[in-house]
Design a protein around this nucleic acid. Structure first.
Length: 110
DNA sequence: GGTCTGACTAAAT
DNA sequence: GATTTAGCCAGAC
């Protein structure tokens, strides 16, 4: 099952700079369906090499910011990438949302 | 080895 | 429309 975590890490690493995605989107892309919790659990085990701060819940809320450490570390990381965060919620989330099952499959976008 | 929990999500109430 | 319930699966106790 480590492969599952590895896949999660890889997808998260594929998230472009200044973009965000959701646990459910990753789970769906991996074919795990509704098991979005496992993605979050994978993040818990994830190393600092994984930009987990770009992963939020379906509402664009920084639900896991507390796991990064004290204060608003996650929010600062996002703002550092040009992502506006307001009250633990990503501003224009739908614009910044990056869906792997969409962005990675559509190759002939023309 | 059964039970609880969790960085989620969608549907029902 | 906010709160609750249920489904999800892997790890901790």
């Amino acid at each position: 099952m480590d492969d599952f975590f590895e896949m999660v890490y890889e997808v998260v690493r594929l998230v472009p700079y200044g973009r965000v995605t959701s646990y459910g989107a990753i789970a769906r892309y991996l074919g795990t369906g509704q098991s979005a919790r496992m993605v979050g659990w994978a993040m818990n085990k994830a190393s600092n090499s994984v930009p987990a701060h770009r992963v939020v819940n379906s509402a664009g809320l920084l639900t896991g910011k507390h796991h990064f450490g004290p204060g608003s570390v996650m929010q600062e990381l996002l703002e550092n990438e040009g992502i506006r965060v307001e009250d633990d919620q990503i501003v224009e989330f739908e614009k910044l949302f990056w869906d792997p099952s969409r962005e990675l499959e559509i190759d002939d976008f023309d």
